[in-house]
Design a binder for these strands. Structure first.
Lengths: 145, 145
DNA sequence: CAAATATAATTGATATATCAATATTATTCA
DNA sequence: TGAATAATATTGATATATCAATTATATTTG
């Protein structure tokens, strides 16, 4: 009974924490004048860190559906943060290149992103954080096997 | 540098864990022949636990937008798991009543739901779970203030 | 080489998230 | 009481998640 209740609360809190963090982070972006969603930022950041990835690889990296990545990239092209050109050797693929605009945007956003993380983790030391991390990884592994 | 990286990984894992769990849990429902989403289940469960709630209260309880709850309830009415009638004293509200079908469904689902949680938490003892819970609550509070 | 298979990406349909605007009914208070 | 305000819920628009089907191109293999 007790344990069952604990498990309920655990996933309840897990869901609540990530939602609360996302809402908080998105609100901070808006308040700092950035007109971009967290998910769009994730894709830009992934491309900034590893420029020559396929959309498939990006999707894996950010845990998104391929369809979602396609649509997010469409929006980023519209917003002139990305340029798509056909890949020279493989005509199924695209080269995705960040525009100057995007590079500047990422730089400008970085301090806000870091502040968001610090705020969210206030009062949590490194030892607790790595304990926490460990349990997250256990859950991930348990759900993948 | 080290700490910054840890923070990155932490939210990354947090996002990955809840997504992985949700996908796992939803897949188990499908495999067991239940034609209902996790979110629809959440709303049914909330109503089962507390029958006389407004849609507003349900939304708060399950961390959903009011608009989302409206639409989820529409679907549950279509699927004949809920009946909506106008509230006697307050014509802005609705009474939401679970059908027999829904009661049976919830009962039939319960073992699967509990198994999902146990599987996901395999190898995590109560002490670690409550440590984990504590950190989740810290994050939630940090993002709400 | 040609057919079969695999890979990369898109598209359509449905569900949910979020924000803003709106409609309806209740409550408050001047 | 009547006007202002609050509460309850819906609707529309846009973004994302998920699944299934499709298109186009590459690669493998008989």
């Amino acid at each position: 009974m007790e344990a069952e209740n604990l498990k309920e609360i655990l996933f309840y809190s897990l869901e609540k924490s990530i939602k609360t963090y996302r809402q908080f982070a998105q609100r901070q972006l808006v308040e700092n004048g950035f007109n971009i969603t967290i998910d769009q930022w994730l894709v830009l950041k992934a491309l900034s860190d590893g420029p020559h990835q396929t959309q498939h690889q990006i999707a894996e990296l950010v845990f998104k559906d391929y369809a979602s990545v396609t649509r997010i990239i469409e929006l980023l092209v519209e917003k002139q943060y990305l340029v798509r050109t056909i890949h020279a050797n493989d005509r199924r693929r695209f080269n995705l290149t960040l525009t100057e605009n995007a590079v500047r945007l990422l730089e400008a956003m970085q301090p806000v992103i870091e502040k968001n993380r610090s705020t969210a983790l206030k009062g949590i030391n490194e030892q607790h954080a790595s304990q926490f991390q460990h349990i997250l990884n256990l859950i991930i592994n348990n759900c993948q096997s």
